[in-house]
Write a protein that binds this DNA or RNA. Structure first.
Length: 488
RNA sequence: GGCGGCGUAGCCAAGUGGCUAAGGCAGAGGUCUGCAAAACCUUUAUUCAGCGGUUCGACUCCGCUCGCCGCCUCCA
């Protein structure tokens, strides 16, 4: 079995073949650091987090590079608005980004290069493009000559003629072709500048990724990724720059994930319909967000809503509960007769295989979660059928499945916490929303227990209803009464 | 205008040229319980937007229609 991934360049799903056996060189376009990240950025981070974890699980070594754009029109504008420097602004939001990533517990990239720290490489690349006829200078600007690159449009499936027909290309007398894009922008007063052969200025948006991926991964590498909105023009232009300069193929595989939408509309800064990562994490455990993200295939749109997050929380809790129940099982007895037969082990025995099949199929986490839940169902059933005490072999089997589930879920960053602690913390969060103090609840439970012992059902029900009204649900078990916050 | 994607049960969401159309949430019935809750079991699409076509056979391939969304300008 091999990992197959949808490659935007080939426009189809292809088996992953790496340049060096067992090594994946991955470059992901990171953020432009000028504002807090929204959950669209979170999806991006989580999708590539899952990719890296899965590849490593499949025994690949992964070199993971994710850049920061720390010089750009939006940064200049925002810095001016906030009466600060571009440097201060971008550094501040890179810090905030790191805080968000830490909260999401994402895998840390091997390298996180910044555009402003690679000016020499950028300038060298532009010089190379000029020398090869792919770029030209106009005043203090340098433009890429799109017509000089025959493959222009091959990633996004567009033709130059079609695009020029569109009226949305900004008119610029300086350019030979309206589709030509800036590699170097001569500076205006007050803007951050770097010295260059074309005078003081700053790099265009696309060139940094070509320069930095080349610096750390070489002319050709395995996977380049980002959101679907980067396909054109950003990634198309990267290909033109990199292949134009090196004459070598750039990224072999292009992975693009879908957007997060709200009420079916793309979440974006310009529409103002975005939620920041920290806003969401204030109300939801990070694994709930992960669960939500991975219930949908990464290339499809993901519609955010409170209901969807609540559903995800319930699903995740079901996962944790199954594992926690396993941990609470009493010790086995050597003389007990095993009850789980080979036929019952059969389906669970193929769990990992079926999980891999789903993940190999273009990282189909939705399908993989389906496999996980099927196993949870079997696991719960077998556990409940276990005699007390159970045979050591049976217990070992179920705990082995539990451990495997934990490991597989870990690829999506799920079940990363000790189950009992997770369920407790979930309860703590629910607790904070209650209007009644835990001590008072405990006291009422004691009182109800006495009433029940006296078979005073009326009083017992009265107390239960009273607590229910306060949002507390009671659970009478063999070991006594426990309670939990009522789910709505 | 150009290019691309999507439309599967109440909601979310996989999937496939022929095998029971996964799974989650919600709902219903049952086991358990003094009653509940939890857990478990059973159950919820003769059907995959609509209409045609290809095929022995399509939800899956092709065409058209309708609806929704995205890219073509900064965007994850």
């Amino acid at each position: 079995m091999t990992v197959s991934i949808f490659n935007t360049l080939a426009n189809k799903k292809v088996p992953l073949e790496t340049l060096e056996p067992g090594l994946v060189k991955l470059y992901v376009c990171g953020i432009t650091a000028y504002d807090y990240c929204h959950i669209g950025h979170a999806r991006s981070a989580l999708v590539f987090d899952m990719l890296v974890r899965y590849l490593r699980y499949r025994d690949y070594r992964v070199t993971f590079v994710r850049n920061f754009t720390d010089i750009d029109d939006k940064i200049i504008k925002r810095a001016a608005e906030q009466q600060t420097t571009c440097e201060e602004l971008s550094e501040r939001f890179i810090r905030e980004f790191h805080a968000d990533m830490a909260a999401l517990k994402t895998v840390v990239p091997d390298l996180e290069p910044k555009a402003t720290e690679h000016l020499p490489q950028i300038i060298r690349l532009i010089e190379e493009l000029i020398a090869k006829g792919h770029a030209y200078q106009r005043g203090g600007d340098v433009y890429y000559r799109v017509e000089s690159f025959v493959g222009y449009g091959k990633l996004s499936g567009r033709k130059l003629e079609d695009m020029q027909a569109g009226a949305r290309v900004s008119v610029n007398e300086e350019k030979e072709n309206p589709m030509d894009f800036a590699l170097w922008k001569g500076s205006k007063p007050g803007e951050p500048t770097w010295e260059s052969p074309w005078g003081p200025g700053r790099p265009g948006w696309h060139i940094e990724c070509s320069a930095m991926s080349r610096e750390y991964l070489g002319d050709t590498f395995d996977i380049h990724g980002g959101g679907k909105d980067l396909v054109f023009p950003h990634h198309e232009n990267e290909i033109a720059q990199s292949e134009g300069a090196s004459g070598q193929p750039f990224a072999k595989n292009w992975i693009h994930h879908g957007f997060v939408t709200i009420k079916e509309e793309k979440m974006s800064k310009s529409l103002g319909n975005f939620l920041t990562i920290r806003e969401v994490l204030a109300d939801h455990h990070q694994e709930v967000l992960r669960f939500f993200v991975f219930t949908t295939h990464y290339r499809n749109p993901l519609d955010y809503s409170d209901t969807a997050l609540k559903d995800s929380a319930v699903g995740l809790e079901r996962l944790y509960s199954a594992i926690a129940a396993l941990e609470r099982l009493p010790a086995p007895a050597a003389q007990a007769v095993p009850t789980i037969g080979p036929e019952e082990r059969g389906k669970l025995a193929t769990l990992e295989e079926r999980f891999q099949e789903a993940m190999d199929n273009d990282l189909n986490t939705a399908q993989a979660l389906g496999v996980i839940f099927e196993a949870v169902k079997d696991l719960n059933r077998l556990r409940q059928q276990l005699p007390t005490p159970a045979a050591p072999a049976d217990l070992e089997f179920l705990q082995g499945i539990g451990a495997l589930l934990t490991r597989l879920c870990g690829i999506m960053g799920l079940l990363s916490e000790p189950p009992a602690a997770f369920l407790l913390s979930l309860r703590a969060q629910e607790l904070s929303e209650l209007t009644i103090a835990p001590e008072e609840i405990e006291q009422l439970i004691v009182e109800r227990c006495e009433a029940r012992t006296a078979k005073n059902w009326q009083r017992a029900d009265e107390i239960r209803d009273q607590l229910l009204a306060a949002g507390v649900e009671l659970k009478d078990g063999a070991a006594g009464t426990t309670w939990q916050a009522k789910k709505d």
